[in-house]
Design a protein around this nucleic acid. Structure first.
Lengths: 199, 199
DNA sequence: GTCTATATCCTGATAGAC
DNA sequence: GTCTATCAGGATATAGAC
């Protein structure tokens, strides 16, 4: 299993998953509140009855989507943690993964990065407190403890590490960057690392 | 007029402005779609009739808020452009301004940075295409043309310049950073500049 | 399990008195 | 200009047949 391409939905097929995919697209394109269950079911080709047998309610499908995407990110982080030994390499691999996902599954990435989940999933934690994002910052903290990364405030280091890439992804998703950002990765990583490497 | 503190709403007073401020707070705290006009009017202490005499509709108040905040950012950019001569200084001043605004007016900053405006203001351009953000990137492009900033893809440079600060602001607004971020500015700017300065 | 038809609620917006 | 009372529409969620 090579990972030249990353994906959030490795297996598609069942109507359940198909409904999730359509929900993802509509939630990202039009927003959660602008998507009616009727529209969603019509677009997914399922009945209202089917919907309510598979999902508790409208929040339910959004929650399943949210948790699925975060769980998938955690699995990708697991692989990175296994493969890479230094924290610098882990961070680089994370950024490369994010760039890859943004190109392969822009809607999923949009839902993770852009959506204001608290507005429709009130009981979920803020996404930057979610396990996957905590672990990503953990790589930075560990790198600083090891001396791979310069001494500084940990949150400043995490922002320097991930902020530029997230910004670039947002610009790409919003159509302000024409070229696939994979081509820009090396240049971005070079800049990021200059800001964090020891003197 | 010193600018140790920046503000989006320099003058408050009229019921019109008061209603705008309450709308801002509710839109950021609960989201646009979770805020009913009835709740908004009750909280602002105005009647439904007053509301519809001052604003065309629910979108209208959101649009006025949006345009006001962006216009105010443009004014602050005007001042920065006047005061600072080099593009490096301008970028640094922009970041300092953003940090200051995030502390002084977190709700306004949240509305600018976090809200998904396209969901409730369909005819507005994406915010990263708005004049203020275009000008901010322009400082970076000009700095690269002048040789103050290393040669690289312009959008990569813009992401390196602004991404970390925006990320830090988001973390602060989401409660993951306890200390006022003004204290962290020098450290962050040091990192940002390392990523962009010529060799 | 799946579908259609429908109940119920709430919201944005208006009408008309003052 | 400002207010209260109300309307009309659309949304979520359910009921009940199959």
């Amino acid at each position: 299993m090579t990972h030249e391409t990353w994906t959030f939905f490795p297996h598609a097929g069942s109507r359940h998953v198909q409904t999730l995919r359509v929900a993802l697209r509509l939630f990202v394109q039009n927003g959660f509140f602008n998507t009616s269950i009727q529209d969603l079911c019509a677009e997914a080709g399922v009945s209202i009855g089917f919907f309510y047998n598979h999902f508790a309610d409208k929040e339910g499908i959004a929650r399943e989507l949210y948790r699925h995407l975060l769980a998938r990110m955690n699995m990708l982080l697991d692989e990175i943690e296994e493969r890479q030994t230094s924290n610098r390499e882990r961070c680089e691999a994370v950024l490369r993964m994010l760039f890859g996902l943004a190109e392969a599954e822009p809607e999923a990435m949009g839902f993770v990065v852009n959506a204001r989940h608290r507005e429709f999933l009130p009981e979920e934690q803020a996404i930057c407190s979610a396990s996957a994002f905590v672990r990503m910052r953990g790589f930075v903290f560990a790198g600083m403890a090891d001396g791979e990364i310069r001494e500084m405030n940990p949150m400043v280091a995490a922002s320097l590490m991930y902020g530029s890439a997230i910004r670039m992804i947002c610009l790409r998703l919003d159509g302000l960057v024409d070229t696939p950002i994979g081509q820009l990765f090396d240049s971005l990583w070079d800049g990021v690392w200059r800001s964090l490497r020891p003197d």
